[in-house]
Structure formats: structure tokens, C-alpha cells
Computed example of a mutant assay.
Amino acid sequence: MTETELLALLRELDDPERLEWPLNYDRTAASLSFGGLVRRLETDFRTQCEFEQDTQDSSEYGRVRVPAEATICGTRIVVCVSKFGSLAEVCADNPGAFLGTEEAREEGALDLADLATVERALAELGYVSVPEELLESDYEGPSALEHFAARPTWWTRFFGSM
């Protein structure tokens, strides 16, 4: 998807009445999808991945961590999954550790082949990968700004605590 299409999707998914999860949120379906993602990444990277799921008081459903030892550059890869619309984000080390995957690649922390492996898994499992650079841009949706504890960004809206 283009940046314009991704922004349109973020706006479409944004419901100011439902900050933590969408109206028709299915916790069981989210768990099954997330479990499939964990298994897929473990298979693709031939290692066990740490994960946490069903995050409380957050619009993020969970995170999968591909250990540094399993990556080409020796930096762990973190995949964050939102409770909204199967949105996902791929980060080197941690969200916010770099300005995005491009900066991580330029600094030698993320290999293009590893990123492609994660992006392929997300796409094949029905997730929509949103670049960290876009998620860190200023939030321009209908939710009231007082719900944001820090600078309002799209990341805070779909992956943070509100």
C-alpha cells in the first residue's frame, strides 16, 4: 500500500468511541492470528521467539521478538500487532530505537532479507504492515487529544496506551 492508502486506512479504522479495540473485536480470532504469526516467524528464522499478547489497557494486541542471534545483522526484530484491522509494525531492536526500518538498514542494524522475511509473513497471514516512520507522524484523527499521554502520533493511537 502507498502512504496515502495507509493513512486512509488508519483514518478509516479510527473510532473515537473505541480507543482500546474496535467495535467487532474478536479476542479469540486475534489470538489465533497472532499464534500463527509467532509460529511462522519461529519457522522462518529457525528459532524460538519471545512474545507477549493480549496487552491490557493498550490498543496493541501483542509483540513478537525475533532474537538477535537469529538475524543477519545481530539485532533483534520486534513485530508489534494492533487490535485494530490487523495492523502491524516491524522495528529493529524496539519501537523508537531507530527512526524506522530505513534508518536501521542504513546503520547496519537490519538486513533487507530479514525484513523481507518478516514482511512476507505478515502479508501472507493477512496483516497490514505500516512503516514506523508513518506511525510516528502527527496524529490527525477524530479522537480527542486529551486521550494521548504524550505527543499524539498514529503509533500511540493504534499501538500505545490511551
Score class of each variant (00 low, 15 high):
5 E>I: 10
6 L>E: 10
7 L>F: 11
7 L>I: 15
7 L>V: 15
10 L>T: 01
10 L>I: 02
15 D>Q: 03
18 R>M: 09
19 L>N: 02
21 W>S: 04
24 N>M: 09
24 N>K: 14
25 Y>F: 15
32 L>F: 07
36 G>F: 06
38 V>L: 15
38 V>R: 15
40 R>W: 04
40 R>A: 12
40 R>Q: 13
43 T>F: 08
46 R>H: 12
51 F>T: 00
51 F>Q: 03
53 Q>E: 09
56 Q>A: 08
56 Q>F: 06
57 D>T: 09
58 S>K: 13
59 S>E: 06
60 E>V: 00
60 E>F: 01
61 Y>G: 00
61 Y>H: 10
62 G>F: 07
66 V>F: 02
72 I>G: 01
72 I>E: 15
77 I>L: 14
79 V>H: 05
86 S>M: 11
89 E>A: 12
89 E>I: 08
91 C>M: 10
95 P>L: 14
95 P>H: 15
95 P>Q: 15
97 A>V: 14
98 F>T: 09
106 E>H: 09
107 E>V: 13
108 G>E: 08
113 A>E: 10
113 A>G: 01
116 A>H: 03
116 A>E: 05
123 A>N: 05
125 L>A: 04
127 Y>S: 02
136 E>K: 10
136 E>F: 09
138 D>L: 11
140 E>W: 04
142 P>I: 05
142 P>F: 03
144 A>F: 09
145 L>G: 00
145 L>I: 11
146 E>H: 09
149 A>H: 12
151 R>F: 03
152 P>V: 14
158 F>Y: 09
159 F>E: 10
161 S>I: 06
162 M>E: 07
